[in-house]
Design a binder for these strands. Structure first.
Lengths: 156, 156
DNA sequence: ATTGAAATATGTTCGTA
DNA sequence: TACGAACATATTTCAAT
């Protein structure tokens, strides 16, 4: 994996390979190869290059949060006493397993996080006893996701 | 995949299998088997059950947006003229490839979206010519993600 | 960059406990 | 549920173009 971050250009065949694997990480190389019309070895080589150049950052199984009992997703905007406290706050947020994303953002808040909870009760406990308890957090604004209509990756 | 949505209970071995595959969808079953201390066939059987029960919702290759030239991620809160317009608005948002997530939310906005753009110029164009152009969108509030510090799935 | 074929590694099925 | 062994597929390497 390259450490610098110049933009990498990929061609149409790379895109087709990536599109397939982005929707199913276990799709067999040969199946992709036959569809595109080049050999499996060529796909393999292209994948190796895409990994080395850092275009591919990994692969993941995804699980259904709701079936596991996690029904409440929410976004929380966090106001901090001093913006300088950002790094300490993030360090604390990392320790909270319900926090799925954490962004430094422009606008009203210092930090915006996405969290997943079992239910509203769990969400309330999390906000009151974990998030608000973090040193430096002065106020939060919570937006519960009633329904997620789109969840996808960048389209190649 | 089951269609009802009762909560599914999974045991410690299932969790260990899922944790491994959630961090690397292509990790060989036998490697997981050896680590846990059960046979590959047993892992295979458990995975089949986890798929059938709907716990596993898929697998994905993930790509590095920045290396592909997409450097600006943002959240946009959308105010609608009438809340009843929600479904039409979502239909339009689905057509915009830069939209990665779309949530109906409680709070100020009707809808909160996450978008990915090449740069601030691209973001501005997207907001002015695509998002604001959607019938029913009255106002938007944009929060640019200056840096994403956490990006992970639910922790089993 | 690409190929086909060989070698290796992995996934899947099945009879049994 | 779990096992191991047999079987079926998939990945990886490689010499050649």
């Amino acid at each position: 994996m390259k450490s610098n971050s110049f933009t990498v250009e990929i061609d149409g065949i790379d895109k087709e390979i990536l599109r397939d694997l982005m929707s199913d990480a276990r799709k067999p190389i040969l199946q992709i190869a036959n569809k595109i019309g080049i050999s499996g070895a060529a796909i393999h080589q292209r994948l190796r290059k895409l990994e080395q150049s850092g275009v591919i950052s990994g692969s993941k199984f995804t699980v259904n949060n709701k079936i596991l009992g996690y029904n409440t997703m929410a976004f929380v905007g966090i106001y901090l006493d001093k913006a300088a406290r950002n790094p300490e706050t993030v360090r604390e947020l990392k320790k909270i397993p319900e926090v799925l994303e954490c962004h430094y953002t422009t606008g009203n808040w210092s930090i915006l996080i996405k969290i997943i909870c079992k239910d509203n009760e769990h969400l309330m406990q999390l906000l009151n006893t974990k998030i608000q308890a973090i040193e430096g957090v002065s106020r939060t604004e919570t937006f519960i996701s009633l329904d997620q209509q789109i969840d996808r990756q960048i389209q190649l």
